[in-house]
Computed example of a mutant assay.
Amino acid sequence: MSKPTIVLVHGAWADGSSWNAVASELQSQGFTVLTPPNLLRGASDADYISSFLAQRTSGPVVLVGHSYGGFVITNAAAGGGDVKALVFVDAFIPEVGEIVFQILGGSGSALDVPDPTAVLDVVGYPGGPEGDAEAFLKPETVHNSFAQDLPEADRWLIVQSQRPITLSANTTPSATAAWKTLPSWAVVGTEDKVIPPATQRSMAERAGATITEVAGSHVSMVSHPQATIDAILAAVAATSD
């Protein structure tokens, strides 16, 4: 059986480069690895990834999502491409109808605060729906809660290069739950302050995912890439029989 294509979907405040350590190792093992842009705009995000899968892959796919990317792959997997497995890394794994803000509510997340502008910079953007806005992480949020286990220089790169997510993306209900029909793996960062580990575990257990843990922040695929690589390779092995 041919090796599956590995498609890595980034989350909010990131881009494809957040997968560099994972992608380079998988490529060295002979895998085709693709890191499409996640639009971070709402329902159209999953539609875009589904279209990408349909047009840019052939043969089996292992679909991987980080953070909000997990929300996207949960909705995109059935829409295009031959997805055989899902891998969630410090990620949302929503049930149908759930939204990001609902999942984080009461979780102890650093983002679940009475005044969101204490941790986020919220700004308008052209062409958006009435009342919508983009959210950037404040520098101190990156340093203390998002990527606290990375070197300071790398944290500043995240601050400077982050891609904002719209508020509407965080209030868009999940339309499907691909984990109900696809085998799933989950990497839980035990030091994650954005999606607390208890919340990650609860979603992963509900999805019947094979769970591994790593002593990493919300960006554990950057700070501890081997845990993510191992989970992806386990998904490959389990779906290649």
Rank of each mutant, 00 (worst) to 15 (best):
A231V: 04
D154R: 12
E205A: 03
G16C: 12
D230H: 07
A235K: 02
E213W: 05
K3W: 06
L104E: 08
M221F: 12
H66F: 01
W156L: 13
M203H: 02
V9A: 09
E95Y: 00
N170C: 15
V100P: 10
T166A: 12
P126T: 09
R163Q: 13
V100G: 10
D154A: 15
L182G: 03
G42I: 03
D241R: 07
S223R: 03
S168R: 14
E130M: 13
I99K: 10
W156R: 05
V113P: 14
T190V: 11
A135N: 05
Q160K: 04
G69M: 15
L86Q: 00
N75F: 01
V100C: 14
V113E: 09
P173W: 05
F88R: 00
P114T: 10
D45G: 11
L8S: 11
T228D: 09
A177K: 01
Q148S: 04
R56N: 15
Q160I: 07
T32D: 12
V123R: 07
I158H: 02
S174W: 02
D90L: 04
N170H: 08
L53Y: 02
V33Q: 09
L167K: 15
V187Y: 03
A118Y: 04
G59F: 05
A147M: 01
A91I: 09
A91L: 14
V123P: 01
D45T: 12
D149G: 09
